[in-house]
Each structure stands twice: as structure tokens, then as C-alpha cells.
Amino acid sequence: MSVTNETSLVERLAARFGDMLAVKVERNEVTAEVSPRDLISVATALRDESGFRFTTVIDVCGVDYLSYGQTEWDTDTAQGDSFSRGVEGQAVGRFTWAERPRGVEQPRRYAAVIHLLSVELNQRIRLRAFCEDDAFPVVPSIVPIWPGADWFERETFDLFGIIFDGHPDLRRILTDYGFVGHPFRKDFPLIGNVEVRYDAEQKRVVYEPVSIEPRVLVPRTIRNDADLDQARAESADHWREN
């Protein structure tokens, strides 16, 4: 991405917004965390003021941070001959609707992530606004600022149930007519709830509860032994050639 601009963009952000934004730079990408209350004023300034000129909204999407950093592959306890091989937990794809994880608390669960682009200054920024109430996640809509955010917000509402306050037409967009639930939430089953088929007797398409079983082939694991560092050290070693 536009490497040359980043430091100065961060400086400009700090000078203009101060504490309103928590800015961080990783891999030459600027991420700014903003509270939903300030989102509209920040976004308007980012679009209009010289030095920012983010005239294009590239993307708006939701993230559900439930189960972030959790694994289901337990290798903590060693047995006599090997590590234990227990798949634990209810990660994506492992549960049905009836068995979905409930009562799991995750502070600041939902976030709306906005990617902006300035064609004029060739710079990008990522804004993240965490919803304050997990039971009723609300973020102000940026459609009045960028009309292009319209469908992206509808999609985020559809898939994550994040409400965009002030959106002119917040309907479902990707899921079926009459769909129940928000499928990209981490506590929504991968197999879904209903399936459809054509019923020859009734001569119409009917909805039925899903008949497939949840199935995941590879457990979710997080290795703490820094695989990549090890690999780098190994390749630097050239022990293989010797």
C-alpha cells in the first residue's frame, strides 16, 4: 500500500482528532479505532478535509469477535506415549442451532470495520467501531456521507445483525426472503437451520429442518511455538544441505 504516506497520515490524524481515534500502524496499514458516538463527525472530516480526502468507501463489514483466540485442539496434558487428542469447544461448524454456544460473554463482541480510500492522495485507512451493547449492536450509518456504503451496511446488518442507525433502507440483502437469524455470527451454525426441497405432492418448494450433521475435518489450533520463526531459522541454517 502507499508506503510513503503512512507516517504523515498518522501524524495528521493525531493532530486533527487527538484522543478521538486510537491509531495504529501494522504492515503499512493504518487502523483507527473510533467510538460509535464520534464516527459521523470523524468520517465527515475524513472525507472533506485536505490531507485526508477519503472520497471513496471501499468496504464496510462486520466482525464478530466471539471466540477470538480460542482453540479446540487440546495438547496441554501429556499422556505416557503422546499428547492428549481432545477436540474441545464449539468452534465454527461444530454445532447445530439447538446446541449453539449460549451464555458466553465476550466484551465488545461486534465491530463494524470500514475501509476508506483516497483516490486523490493515494492513501487508505481502516476505521473500526465497536458496538457498545452486544444485545443490541448499533453503529451510526455512514450512508449520508458515502452513498456507496448503502449495500455494505445492509449486508452487515443481514449477516451480523448490526443496526446502522440512520440508514435509509435497512433490509436484508443476501439471505433468503423470510430468513431468521444472522448467519455470520459465531454462534450461528455453519450448516444453517433450514433446507429447501421441491415437494412433488404439495407441488411447491418446502422448508424443512436441516438433515445434515455438523462436520469439521480439521480442528482449530493455535500453536505458540512460533512455527514461522522456527522455519526461518531452519532455512537460514542450511542444515539440510550438509
Binding site: 463489514c61 449495500w151 449486508e155 493455535i222
Partner: peptide, 26 residues
Amino acid sequence: GCYLVSDGANKPFRVHLRAPGFAHLS
């Protein structure tokens, strides 16, 4: 575009795909 969030696991935590057609059609 591809917006990728990883929590260090062997599977992505969140993948979002930014499709040009979606923005255009809106």
C-alpha cells in the same frame, strides 16, 4: 479486496471479500 483477520490459528478468524460488482450494483 480481501480483509483477513487471524487470531493465530490454522483457520482464518474472519475473511471478508470486497467484490467490485457489489459496490457497482448498489
